[in-house]
């Protein structure tokens, strides 16, 4: 296995265009080689913009979701690769896990690596993980696993059941009002140009009446709501259960038990979940 080392972050335009072209093959294939970007310098002004859009204060240390955003060009690069029959188009981000091993400063130079792993059958297609690792001077500081469902793709084997997140209705104790332009704002700070988040036409083409906000915005906003309450190192897991239409209002509910924050972003009335998130310190996660 060889690592493909990039000298700079791949431009999103062409790679994204390729990643958006539906594959003709039905058999799911992924590039084996990880792709890596070294000596990456974070842009403090873009971080400030990201923090404003997602509701984080601008700190010296960065949110783990920001580190995810930095891996995203490599996601696109991998799924735009000719060895990949899985395309970003039609791939649904179903769940995400991240571990922040220690606070990461905006001034630290990062080595960012992403590999496509774990291709497995699912009733509605193929599941795969994009596994990200960020290192600072050889030390792993962040790990992330983004699980996508490639609808209609085939992988040999018995389909695996995605565990359904248990959910009982909550009484939201906060309401977020998501403006129509939020998709454009998050596109600017995340670099994710998928028109499903900004264009009504594109959204309709994928079966949504209106544009939907990026799942990773909702994840970031939920983490920002816990800001000040989180340990220095933690693991966070989310399941994206239902897209949020723009503009729209959603409910927010968080509870802390046994050191684990359980968060639900729900419909306004708290009956249906859009996103379920848990956050726990890595001490606990390791135990």
């Amino acid at each position: 296995m060889a690592v493909e080392v990039l000298s700079e972050a791949p431009g999103m335009g062409a790679a994204f265009a390729r990643a958006m072209v539906p594959a003709r093959a039905r058999g799911a294939r992924l590039p084996e080689d990880p792709v890596r970007l070294e000596g990456y310098r974070q842009d403090a002004a873009r971080l400030a913009d990201y923090a404003r859009v997602c509701g984080f204060p601008l700190r010296d240390t960065v949110p783990p979701t920001w580190l995810h955003v930095l891996t995203f060009p490599l996601h696109v690069h991998l799924l735009g690769d000719r060895r990949s029959s899985v395309r970003l188009v039609g791939a649904v981000h179903v769940s995400n896990s991240m571990t922040l091993r220690r606070p990461v400063s905006v001034r630290e130079e990062l080595a960012i690596e992403v590999a496509a792993r774990g291709l497995r059958p699912h009733q509605r297609g193929a599941l795969l993980d994009l596994v990200g690792t960020i290192r600072v001077a050889g030390e792993t500081v962040w790990e992330g696993v983004s699980t996508y469902l490639a609808s209609g793709m085939e992988v040999p084997g018995e389909p695996v059941e995605l565990p359904r997140e248990p959910f009982t209705a909550v009484v939201p104790h906060a309401r977020w009002r998501l403006p129509a332009g939020l998709g454009r704002d998050y596109r600017r700070v995340s670099g994710d140009p998928n028109p499903i988040h900004t264009s009504r036409l594109a959204a309709r083409a994928f079966g949504f009446p209106r544009p939907i906000i990026h799942g990773m915005w909702t994840h970031a906003r939920a983490l920002a709501a816990l800001d000040g309450r989180l340990p220095e190192a933690y693991r966070t897991d989310v399941a994206f259960t239902k897209p949020v239409l723009l503009p729209g209002s959603v409910g927010f509910h968080a509870a802390l038990a046994d050191g684990v924050h359980s968060v639900a972003v729900t419909s306004r009335d708290g009956a249906k979940p859009h996103l379920l998130m848990s956050v726990s310190s890595t001490e606990r996660a390791r135990a």
């Binding site: 403090a44 400030a48 913009d49 923090a51 204060p57 601008l58 700190r59």
Partner: peptide, 14 residues
């Protein structure tokens, strides 16, 4: 210049 009053105040308190 990118930091708001709230960002700056949080930084000082942190």
């Amino acid at each position: 210049a990118e930091a708001s009053n709230q960002d700056l105040l949080i930084a000082a308190l942190d």
